[in-house]
Amino acid sequence: MIDRYAPFTTRWDPFSDISQLSRTMNRLFRTFPEGRAETFPAMNVYAGDEEAVVTAELPGVESNQLDVSVNGDIFTISGTRETGESRENQAWHRRERFSGKFTRSVQLPFQVESDKVRARLKQGVLQVILPRAEADKPRRIQIENK
């Protein structure tokens, strides 16, 4: 057993409870451009120099139940998650997991090459890599010295 308050083995961080609370609150009041809270799946969008990365938590979704598309800088994910079990004489004690159809769109930080998008689904986490469109990349402008 690990003793949480063992004085010399664990560094006590006075702010850890507060940051934990703030993360919990952020998760409770998730907001995205549409302004809908608690939507499935939860998504993150990351921007790099060469590409954008979108990740989504999709536990229990098979790749054939999932549809990912890009149009300009709009990324759309849709699909179905079935969580229903059908067994005889069953009683539900708890039903917290999302079940049903979902569609979500997010705006990417820039235009992407839609034919070079790669998507991978692993252990219920989707990762999509979207290379930035050549035409959209920032160009360094040479300043002439006269």
Binding site: R23, R27, R30, F32, P33, A42, M43, N44, V45, Y46, A47, G48, D49, A52, V53, E57, V106, P109
Partner: peptide
């Protein structure tokens, strides 16, 4: 989380 990327919209960690 992908290295050398910044989070632009985040809903989960």
């Amino acid at each position: 989380e992908p290295a050398n990327h910044r989070l632009v919209a985040g809903e989960y960690s």
